[in-house]
Amino acid sequence: MRYEAPESVQGAVALLAAANGDARVLAGGTDLLVQMRADVVEPELIVDIKRIRETRAVTQENGGWRIGAAVTGAELKEHAPLKQAWPGVVEAANLIGSTQVQGRATLGGNLCNGSPAADSVPALIAAGAVAKLAGPHGQRDLPVEDVMLGPRTLALRPGEFVVSFLLPPRPPRSADAYLRFIPRTEMDIAVVGAGVSIAVDGAGTITAARVSLGAVAPRVLLVAEAAQAIIGSRLDDAAQERLAAAARAACRPIDDKRGTTEFRVDVAGVLARRAALIAMDRARTR
């Protein structure tokens, strides 16, 4: 196995494009190393992207925030303006693993690990985040909901990797939230995750919303029907019930020891509703 740590996006792309055999991009390594140690993957080449400046920075861009793919959860937590603008995204990232893991785990890795239960992904999708990809044919932008196609399957082309994410500018009176259900109190994989981002007008009526669900389908879902169910409402009881029903209707979960199909579907409705209430509360008080 060859290990390379290029210092430029072009350098990483060149390595990945020239690789024959299994090449893996390494950010924090908190998933990749576990899979390597279990012989689930046996890469011939590892390209560590942590020395590339663009993957390690959090910067303002056109009123939004650009987050490098290799920025760690701990670094996001310490970034007060980002936390203020996108509390749901930062909370979701901080749910991943322990303090030790937080020091390594990244948004890019959480997405590209290709797990439908990845905590930060529903939050990124609800936020409307767009991934910047770099590859042999240049750079392109892809909405986060289009990056993952199924378990361990990504829309990335050969030689491509995720450099960063762009979170759009925040309109006034808008906020996001993420909730997950796990059987323990921490350090577990989501049985269901729900990310909601909401904007309200001066009267408290929802003008825009995005709802995303994790761990209830082969990929993390953007549920347009759930958003439509609450746009134009003040998130009254009837709107909450429409939201929950739309969330439940979108679910196509697996049935396993961590949660039955029926349970996951039910919890998806509950969490979508609760996350929306938190986002609503935050949006109103801005």
Binding site: A5, G29, T30, L33, V34
Partner: peptide
Amino acid sequence: KMISSCIALAV
């Protein structure tokens, strides 16, 4: 900064 050394490479 604390890390889990079992899932970090020596490199």
